[in-house]
């Protein structure tokens, strides 16, 4: 059953020119964690803020548990939001930050104490109640912000790049913690990020957004393996996108050609670096090695086709390649796109 239903929602900002969210629809199932992934300005925050009630949709419907909440103010919605800048109330200590919402709900004081302490334990901050916000590290502040939402047991948890301001190491740890907590509490979650790692490692499903529109909604492994559009292909992981033409079943681009069983016309060939084999070739080379980077476990070869189109290939023996060398390309798995859609996959 879908807990959250977003139906044809658009948001045009007051100045009338920016379509931040454009006819967006999404169903989120009970207990699911959905990541909204997209480049800066793609409308992720705007969408999340509309679910939280902080922005009003220009058109469309928002439904939570079968109830139309499109015009319900944030304080009456069963959603809990965690902001990027934690937004903790600096004039209150940790306990009071967590207790504020419970007090508004007229929960009895000893019950408040019990629940606040329970949630602090859950986020690994047991005993931190009397601390002031300024006395916490960035990671602890973000945990308190999460706890402040969790303590009210919201139906839907909304997170807007909650770890963006933290360092890589801490970010990875918190990511796992949040995923653990989310699965333990089975809380339906919408998570905004522009980090593909974050989305791939946490999400049950990923929504890839671009200019306020959906590009693809799928499980992480599918989004990675079978991107529906060249944009998704280029945005998730590293992908070589080679623009060329097909004629008589052969795709060609500047001296490089490969069979592609589609009708004649332009096409974009997509190959992951790890799916591209290279062989050294002195005669009839298709490209030239530009740079070789050795990562220890594997190597990455940057090469140029004859017209200087850049292509990356992952190799297991980087020491076999030298800058300036001629190479031939042998893709093991390809996809081809035309008019923003997949026309071939092999």
């Amino acid at each position: 059953m879908s807990v959250l239903k977003i139906k044809d929602v658009s948001k045009i900002f007051a100045n009338g020119t920016v379509r931040a969210v454009d006819n967006f629809s999404l169903d989120v199932a009970d207990g699911e964690l959905v990541c909204l992934l997209g480049p800066s300005g793609s409308g992720k925050s705007t969408l999340l803020r509309m679910v939280g009630g902080f922005e009003r949709p220009t058109s469309g419907l928002m439904i939570i548990n079968g109830e139309d909440i499109t015009h319900v103010p944030p304080e009456k919605r069963p959603t809990g939001m965690v902001f990027q800048s934690h937004a903790l109330w600096t004039h209150m200590n940790v306990f009071k930050n967590l207790a504020f919402g419970l007090k508004l709900r007229k929960v009895a004081p000893d019950e408040i104490k019990r629940r606040v302490e329970g949630v602090l334990d859950l986020v690994g901050l047991g005993g931190y109640g009397t601390r002031h916000v300024a006395q916490l590290s960035g990671g602890q502040q973000q945990r308190v912000a999460l706890a402040r939402s969790l303590v009210l047991e919201p139906k839907i948890l909304l997170l807007d790049e909650p770890f963006a301001s933290l360092d890589q190491h801490l970010r990875e740890r918190l990511r796992e913690e949040v995923r653990d907590i989310q699965q333990r509490l089975k809380i339906t979650t919408l998570f905004v990020t522009h980090g593909q790692d974050e989305a791939l490692s946490m999400a049950d499903r990923i929504v890839v957004m671009r200019d306020g529109k959906t590009e693809q909604i799928d499980r992480p492994d599918i989004v990675y393996r079978e991107p529906q559009t060249p944009f998704v292909a280029g945005f998730i992981g590293t992908m070589n996108l080679i623009e060329g033409t097909v004629s008589n079943g052969i795709f060609s681009k500047a001296g490089y050609s490969t069979p592609l069983p589609v009708s004649d016309g332009p096409a974009i060939l997509a190959v992951r670096p790890e799916a591209l084999d290279l062989t050294v070739a002195n005669d009839n080379a298709q490209g030239k090695v530009h740079r070789v980077t050795d990562y220890g476990t594997h190597g990455l070869v940057d090469l140029e086709l004859l017209d200087s189109t850049r292509v990356k290939a992952m190799v297991s023996h980087p020491d076999l390649f030298r800058a300036g060398q001629g190479v031939r390309l042998a893709p093991k798995a390809i996809a081809a796109y035309r008019d923003n859609a997949v026309i071939h996959r092999a």
């Binding site: 939280g52 009630g53 902080f54 103010p73 944030p74 304080e75 009456k76 959603t79 809990g80 939001m81 902001f83 937004a87 903790l88 109330w89 504020f100 919402g101 508004l104 709900r105 912000a145 402040r148 939402s149 009210l152």
Partner: peptide
């Protein structure tokens, strides 16, 4: 906004 979110008018 965070205060609105936890239920304050």
């Amino acid at each position: 906004e965070a205060a609105r979110d936890v239920g304050a008018g």
